[in-house]
Design a protein around this nucleic acid. Structure first.
Lengths: 115, 115
DNA sequence: ATCATTAGTATATTTTAGTAAACTATAGTA
DNA sequence: TACTATAGTTTACTAAAATATACTAATGAT
């Protein structure tokens, strides 16, 4: 039995399942796994998404200690999002997700314009 | 670019993200990874969950070719759910999820009544 | 003076997912 | 006769999540 933020879990994996209860948060981790990104950049990749939704997801990920938010004192503003140490430790999960997806796509989908 | 069920994806991983856009479907895979289970059994593990929700999630997983549904001609009815080959190939993903979660729980949570 | 840019916030509206509760068929049991 | 069990379905409702749209501050460019 695990206690975390007032919640109790039978199995540790349930923590992951609750964290990534939408497709967006894990996708953001996935995009950030290749380096830092700015708000607008992430937004472009995740289209269609509204500022409000992206903003709230990033805030959640920060509260979960999975990403870091760095503000630069510039105009127009610049904010960079980067994986934290715990976020980076999700890399093996991401790698297996990619491997599985490729296999699945090979079986059920059709690849066009590969490069 | 990948085509699958009328949708197009830039990256194969997006297929996974769309499949597991809720916490329930991957959790079901996780429970089934130790063998087959009946409807009620899954329902008990996933409480609180309604019949309608569980039923729809199982239907989705079946359509995605990730689980198999076996009906036995008995009264009261017996239906067993089992991972398909593609479902079983999610095992490495699950394993990494478990490993990461344990590490995360060790850092931010507190384990009580471990055994 | 006005436009463009970034990283959001604010407000109102719509969509979606999930819930609760009742119901089905079939056979065995009290 | 009524109750139990299983594996759902059906209906009506609600709460949560996402959307569209407009807005802000500060600066440089046109």
């Amino acid at each position: 039995m695990i206690k975390l933020n007032g919640n109790t879990y039978q199995f540790s994996a349930e923590i992951f399942f609750e964290m990534f209860d939408d497709r967006l948060k894990l996708m953001i981790i996935w995009y950030l796994s290749n380096g830092s990104m700015r708000f607008k950049e992430l937004s472009n990749y995740l289209q269609p998404i509204t500022n409000k939704t992206l903003s709230s997801k990033l805030k959640q990920l920060e509260e979960l200690h999975l990403i870091k938010r760095e503000v630069f004192a510039e105009v127009p503003p610049r904010v960079e999002y980067t994986l934290s140490a715990h976020g980076q430790q999700l890399k093996p999960v991401i790698d297996e997700v990619v491997a599985w997806s490729q296999h699945y796509a090979k079986t059920f989908g059709q690849t066009i314009n590969e490069e």
